[in-house]
């Protein structure tokens, strides 16, 4: 029996159970990801994604599977970005972070735990992805993002996720994404507050990222970060990434959502249109 016949025999209606996906992988010497792609190209939804429908059709699930998201920073925002993108079914994830888990991460960083203190964040992220969705190909890079290594890290990405904790590095990331014409989904947090915006090719988000003195850090140094703010902001970022990858909906282009969880207000700021957009 070939793969095609195996798939036909094991599929129930248009769903394919995880156990059968694992069995096909073993029987035909394929990765779980290769089996997943074979299923999706035949219009069969891996059963693990059945609750994605009708939000995400089989065709769109295949598009997500063939997409590559690069997550810069695997801390407060990054942990949730990793978790949600892997569960969504984005097939290729690159996770970039130089740090290990420390005790002060435990109040909010989804992938941290007392047993993992001292472990590199990117290795924990890779293990988590392998645990929750082994069909996803993950590339952990234990490195600090910079202008120098940026092009090598970002090339080939369909979307870049900002989970950084430094304003100066964010500006470098935004510049790299502009130069490579790769969509960037920005998120930043501090205390009860956060912001989300998307920089699509031709846009320039940098005026929204820094203040009067181009400070390295913002109010988060004084306010800290509680458990819920990164979850809210990262989830908004993943919704943006999903739309960008699928070409659906209205993205946060030329506008930013400023989140205030203390007063429970979401303010929309219109941003100056990028020069490339003017005159369209």
């Amino acid at each position: 029996m070939g793969l095609h016949d195996f798939i036909t025999a094991a599929a129930t209606a248009d769903l394919f159970p995880w156990a059968a996906q694992a069995a096909a992988s073993e029987r035909f010497g394929l990765t779980l990801g290769q089996v997943e792609e074979a299923l999706l190209t035949r219009g069969i939804m891996p059963a693990r994604y059945q609750r994605n429908r009708q939000t995400i059709t089989v065709e769109k699930q295949l598009r997500l599977f063939r997409s590559r998201a690069v997550i810069i920073g695997s801390g407060g925002l990054g942990g949730y970005l990793v978790e949600e993108l892997a569960r969504l079914g984005v097939g290729n994830l690159v996770v970039v972070d130089p740090d290990i888990f420390e005790e002060h991460n435990l109040n909010r960083q989804l992938l941290s735990s007392p047993a993992l203190l001292g472990s590199p964040k990117v290795e924990v992220a890779a293990a988590r992805i392998a645990e929750i969705n082994p069909a996803v190909t993950v590339t952990p890079l234990r490195a600090a993002f910079s202008r120098d290594n940026g092009p090598g890290i970002l090339t080939g990405a369909d979307v870049v996720m900002d989970g950084l904790d430094s304003i100066a590095t964010r500006l470098e990331l935004a510049q790299c994404c502009r130069e490579l014409s790769i969509p960037l989904v920005h998120g930043a947090i501090g205390g009860w507050y956060g912001q989300v915006a998307s920089q699509l090719p031709g846009d320039d988000l940098s005026p929204c990222l820094f203040g009067a003195w181009a400070e390295q850090k913002g109010v988060e140094t004084r306010l800290g970060n509680p458990s819920f703010t990164p979850a809210v902001v990262a989830s908004l970022q993943v919704a943006e990434a999903c739309k960008i990858l699928l070409g659906e909906g209205e993205s946060l282009r030329s506008r930013m959502i400023y989140v205030n969880l203390l007063d429970m207000e979401f303010n929309e700021l219109l941003l100056e249109p990028a020069p490339a957009v003017v005159g369209e």
């Binding site: 407060g76 950084l164 904790d165 998120g187 930043a188 501090g190 912001q195 913002g218 988060e220």
Partner: peptide, 25 residues
């Protein structure tokens, strides 16, 4: 509603909005 610098000269009737710098992750 438009981006301005801190030394922008304000005019009668202007609406000034100030947002804190947020940079955590």
């Amino acid at each position: 509603g438009r981006h301005a610098r801190l030394d922008h000269r304000l005019l009668d009737g202007d609406i000034l909005s100030l947002f804190p710098l947020v940079g955590g992750g």
